[in-house]
Computed example of a mutant assay.
Amino acid sequence: MKLIAAQPYVKVDRQIARTGLYYVEDDRTLYLYNDRIVSRHHAFPIEKVWDMSYRPVNGKGGLLYLHTSEGVNVYTVKQSPERFIEMFRETIK
């Protein structure tokens, strides 16, 4: 298992308190290995990952879509994951 690339992402949780609604960000990392992609709570075998795509949102980062045989997983990113996507596509060739 060789680390090829890493992509920071943010998990955003909404919390309701007496004083209002708050958004709490938890910084996390998505790791690309030669045989899998790993997030904090999931591991996807590389043969079950069909593709990745990216959609910028309001010039403040965007959404990274991980298309797998079990569905689509969405990750909020603050910086472009284009290099991460390139490395993934090179890995699955």
Rank of each mutant, 00 (worst) to 15 (best):
K2T: 13
K2S: 12
L3H: 03
A5N: 09
A5S: 15
V10G: 08
D13R: 11
R14N: 09
R14T: 14
Q15I: 10
I16M: 03
A17R: 12
T19R: 06
L21C: 11
L21E: 13
Y22G: 12
Y23F: 12
V24D: 10
E25F: 03
D27C: 07
D27Q: 11
Y31R: 11
L32I: 02
L32Q: 03
Y33S: 09
N34M: 02
N34T: 00
N34R: 07
D35N: 15
D35S: 14
R36S: 15
V38N: 04
V38I: 13
S39F: 01
H41E: 15
F44E: 11
F44V: 01
I46K: 00
E47D: 15
W50F: 10
D51M: 04
S53G: 13
Y54H: 09
Y54G: 13
R55N: 12
R55C: 07
P56A: 09
G59M: 07
G59W: 01
G61H: 03
G62W: 03
L64M: 07
Y65A: 14
Y65K: 15
H67Q: 09
H67F: 05
T68H: 02
T68P: 12
E70R: 06
E70L: 07
V72N: 13
N73V: 06
N73F: 10
Y75A: 09
V77Q: 03
K78L: 10
Q79S: 14
S80C: 06
R83D: 13
R83E: 12
R83N: 11
E86V: 00
F88A: 04
R89W: 03
R89P: 11
R89F: 09
T91L: 08
T91M: 03
I92K: 10
K93S: 14
